[in-house]
Simulated scan of single mutants.
Amino acid sequence: MALKDEPWRLLPSSYARRFSTRILFSDMDAFRHLNNGATGRYFEEGRADLNIQIFGVRHMINAPDGWQLLFANVTIDYIREAHYPGAVEIASGVRSIGRSSYVVSQAAFQQDQCFAVAEAVLVKARQGQSQQLLEAEREALEGLRCTAAEEYP
């Protein structure tokens, strides 16, 4: 099943965090559509916003002692076109939590219409080796869980 086929992913209320920005002129193609690369960047900004809530800005900007967040997987499903000019809202939340990894689910909206959904598996690591999530990090992740995911099996 594709991400876009799960109804909860298309609802802004399913996600714990929101990040809004305007679409830049340079983000459109010749048909005034938001290009796919720009959509990926917007999802990246949404993940950064969420990760700052978990680990703090210091770890995201100037990570100490070889600390890293590694991508194990990133998936984007495109649903419809988004257009310039306009704004984009990226909604993000935590789908699941593992020992050293977690899954971030996201959706992109323009004028309250979902135009793309994404999911990323992130792994906490130090110098390339996975590291167990600390209890405080797990608590922060729990507080950012997607709320409607459990309602749709």
Rank of each mutant, 00 (worst) to 15 (best):
F25I: 09
A82V: 00
L11I: 08
G98D: 06
E142M: 03
R99V: 10
L70W: 01
I61K: 06
I52K: 06
Y152C: 14
A2K: 15
Q68H: 09
I76V: 15
W67C: 03
Y102D: 07
G46T: 04
A2E: 10
E45N: 13
Q111T: 05
I52Y: 07
H33C: 13
L70T: 00
E81P: 02
H83S: 12
G98C: 06
R18M: 05
I61Q: 15
A91K: 10
P153L: 14
R126V: 02
A125Y: 06
S13H: 08
L141G: 07
P7W: 13
G66C: 08
D65E: 03
A16H: 05
K124N: 07
S96I: 13
R41H: 09
F19G: 00
S13C: 05
S13W: 07
Y84K: 07
R47S: 00
A63D: 08
T147I: 10
E142P: 00
S26I: 06
E135T: 06
S96T: 09
R32V: 12
Y78K: 09
W67K: 01
W67S: 01
R18D: 02
I79L: 08
V94C: 02
G98R: 08
E6M: 06
A116G: 11
Q132D: 12
R41A: 09
T39D: 09
S26Y: 12
K124L: 13
S101Q: 12
K4L: 10
F55Q: 04
L144Y: 14
Q106Y: 11
E119G: 12
N35E: 07
G86I: 05
F43H: 02
F25R: 10
P7V: 05
F115N: 06
A108H: 11
P153A: 15
S26L: 13
A149D: 12
V94N: 05
Y15D: 02
R17A: 15
A72F: 09
I54C: 15
T39C: 14
C114L: 03
R47W: 01
I97G: 04
A30C: 01
A125D: 02
F19P: 00
V103D: 11
L11G: 00
F25H: 09
W8C: 02
R126C: 01
Q106H: 13
G98W: 11
C146E: 12
E150Q: 15
P7E: 05
V88G: 05
A87I: 15
A16Y: 14
Y84D: 11
F109I: 02
E137V: 15
E137G: 07
S20A: 04
V74Y: 06
G143K: 04
Q53S: 12
N51Q: 04
T75G: 03
Q111E: 08
T21K: 06
F43W: 03
S92E: 00
G98M: 10
A107E: 00
Q127C: 03
A87H: 15
E6N: 07
V103T: 14
E139T: 14
L133K: 11
E6V: 04
M28T: 15
A140E: 04
V57H: 06
C114G: 01
G98Q: 09
F19T: 02
R58C: 03
D49H: 10
E142G: 00
E151P: 05
I79G: 01
N36S: 12
E81M: 13
D77I: 07
L69I: 01
Q131V: 15
H83F: 14
R95T: 10
V117C: 02
N35R: 14
E150D: 14
T21H: 11
D29I: 06
I90E: 01
I54Q: 08
A108Y: 11
I79S: 02
R9P: 09
L133F: 11
A82G: 02
